Amino acid sequence: MKKISVLVPTYNEEENVVPLCKAIIEQFECNLPDYDYELVFIDNDSKDNTRALIRGLCANNTRIKAIFNAKNFGQFNSPYYGMCQTTGDCTILMCADFQDPVEMIPLLVNEWEKGYRIVSCIKTKSRENPIMYFLRSCYYKTIKKMSDIEQIEHFTGFGLYDKSFIATLKELKDPTPFLRGIVAELGFKRKDIQYTQAKRRAGKTSNNFYRLYDAAMLSFTSYTKIGLRIATFAGFIMSGLSAVAAVVYLILKLLYWNSFSAGIAPAVIGVFLIGSLQLFFTGLLGEYIMAMNVRIMNRPLVVEEERINF
């Protein structure tokens, strides 16, 4: 009997974990009775009653497992680490807030049985804030044009992954993994399925501007070179223009020594313009260096505090 793992990362999801658990088990009992399953929760140091509820679920069903992180290790490390701990023939990754429809689990398994190693779920519509959806669309299209590697638009990680892909994830040893990029980069046989993303069933999202910015910059620095190229080209252009301006100013000063007076305005404008460009590109280079620094330190993805039913 084939075994299917379902991984659910959690952070302050006390209103969702119990009904989600029941909904997932119901899908297996009603639509996938010929498969064994394990349901793994990996909790990123929730501050509410989430862990207590998960402990209760594990106590009543040994096929429900839990990993409790010692602290919050971020929205990318925790799911990635959890996927590497699953033991099924394939692993389904889905969020805990019901935005990823549990009704799609049988469809994902059916596509996997056809031979696809990865079944990725692509949002074509979303019932979230329309402004946020528009901004995400702009971001995905921008990254897609900048990157040399295929980027999957509106892919959040929700989908099914064969155990051969999970084995590859274990070998990567990337301390800052960006799963959405890795899925497209490694070239496993993939099937894309479209779906409409629902609203959160309950609770409040933990995503804020900092987390969204962190996700965007991780993708940008991991899969694009254009930032560094723009900095290089802009540096050449501005240095050339500065040299031309300096020569022209010197010639005019020599020809019209007594009468020529350009004042300090051009110098001030030039200093501020070039200075602002330098600061911008210094910050951009800093993002790349920071990403390199984290990888060089090679710290563990997460540190476990407790695991249950493994």
Rank of each mutant, 00 (worst) to 15 (best):
Arg190Leu: 05
Leu218Ile: 08
Pro177Tyr: 10
Thr224Met: 12
Gln151Lys: 09
Gly203Asp: 02
Arg180Thr: 14
Gly181Ile: 03
Leu228Gly: 10
Tyr139Asn: 08
Gly181Phe: 12
Lys163Cys: 09
Lys145Trp: 08
Asp174Gly: 05
Tyr223Ile: 05
Ile131His: 00
Gly157Arg: 03
Asn129His: 00
Lys199Thr: 13
Ile182Glu: 08
Arg136His: 09
Phe220Val: 13
Asp214Tyr: 15
Asp162Ala: 11
Thr176Leu: 11
Ser206Met: 10
Gly187Asn: 04
Ser222Trp: 10
Ala202Leu: 08
Ala167Asp: 01
His154Pro: 05
Pro130Arg: 00
Ile193His: 02
Phe209Arg: 02
Glu171Lys: 13
Thr176Asn: 07
Leu186Met: 14
Lys204Asp: 06
Leu212Trp: 04
Arg201Tyr: 14
Gly227Ser: 10
Gly157Ile: 09
Tyr213Arg: 07
Ser206His: 15
Glu150Leu: 09
Ser219Lys: 12
Tyr223Ser: 06
Ser219Gly: 13
Tyr140Val: 00
Tyr161Phe: 13
Leu179Gly: 07
Thr224Asn: 05
Glu185Gly: 08
Asp214Phe: 14
Thr221Cys: 12
Arg201Gly: 07
Phe178Tyr: 14
Phe178Val: 15
Tyr223Gln: 02
Glu153Ala: 06
Pro130Asn: 02
Phe158Thr: 01
Lys204Met: 09
Lys144Val: 02
Gln197Leu: 01
Leu212Glu: 00
Ile166Met: 06
Ile152Asp: 02
Phe209Leu: 09
Ile226Trp: 15
Asp148Ile: 14
Lys145Arg: 13
Phe158Val: 04
Asn129Pro: 01
Thr156Trp: 03
Tyr161Ala: 05
Thr221Tyr: 09
Thr176Met: 11
Ser147Asn: 06
Phe209Thr: 13
Phe134Asn: 03
Asp192Gly: 08
Phe188Leu: 12
Asn207Ala: 15
Asn208Ala: 10
Gln197Thr: 03
Met217Ala: 11
Gly157Asn: 03
Phe209Cys: 06
Ile182His: 04
Tyr210His: 12
Pro175Gln: 10
Ala184Phe: 13
Ile166Trp: 08
Arg136Pro: 01
Gly159Met: 04
Gly227Thr: 15
Tyr195Ser: 01
Phe209Met: 06
Asp192Tyr: 12
Gln194Val: 14
Thr221Asn: 07
Ala184Trp: 12
Glu128Arg: 01
Ile166Lys: 09
Tyr195Trp: 12
Tyr195Asp: 00
Tyr139Lys: 11
Ala184Met: 07
Ile226His: 03
Ala198Asp: 13
Thr196Ser: 03
Asp192His: 12
Lys141Met: 00
Leu179Asp: 04
Ala215Asp: 09
Tyr223Leu: 09
Asn207His: 11
Phe220Ala: 09
Phe188Tyr: 15
Asp174Glu: 10
Gln194Met: 10
Tyr140Lys: 07
Asp174His: 06
Pro130Tyr: 00
Ala216His: 08
Met146Tyr: 06
Ser147Trp: 07
Leu212Cys: 12
Phe209Gln: 01
Asp214Asn: 13
Phe155Thr: 09
Phe178Ile: 15
Leu172Tyr: 13
Gly187Ser: 13
Glu153Trp: 05
Ser164Gly: 06
Phe188Met: 03
Glu128Phe: 00
Gln197Ser: 01
Arg190Asp: 04
Gly227Lys: 03
Leu186Ala: 07
Leu186Phe: 14
Ala167Thr: 08
Thr205Asp: 02
Phe188Val: 14
Thr142Asp: 03
Glu171His: 08
Ala184Gly: 14
Ala216Pro: 04
Leu172Val: 07
Gln194Thr: 15
Gly227Ile: 15
Lys141Thr: 02
Glu128Ser: 01
His154Glu: 08
